[in-house]
């Protein structure tokens, strides 16, 4: 299982704080985005924003980073206001 968590504005956009996915068939962060994007137009738009940030086990990584069972994958947006 892979634990997927969302933070900050993503939680409201997706109406979801966290979820778990079966890890077989998912080999990269991009695979997770692809699988979750199929859920709805809202998920598709939110997760395919070019500026979406991702982390695996609290290390920031790019979308090609591998994932495996037991990982915690986090998604969150950049914040730029002030």
């Amino acid at each position: 299982m892979i634990n997927v968590v969302f933070f900050a504005a993503l939680r409201e956009q997706l109406d979801c704080d966290s979820l778990t996915l079966e890890s077989h068939e998912l080999s990269t962060v991009a695979d997770i985005i692809k699988q979750l994007s199929a859920r709805s137009e809202q998920w598709q738009q939110t997760l395919n924003n070019a500026s979406l940030l991702s982390a695996v086990n609290h290390d920031m990584v790019d979308k090609s980073h591998p994932v495996k069972a037991g990982d915690e994958v986090a998604f969150f947006p950049p914040v730029t206001g002030g």
Partner: peptide, 19 residues
């Protein structure tokens, strides 16, 4: 390094989503 510049820089700010 953290936020590679992209053409789709986020337009979200305090005027658009509050604070």
């Amino acid at each position: 390094c953290l936020f590679p510049a992209s053409e789709k820089a986020p337009a979200n700010n305090c005027q658009t989503i509050g604070i």
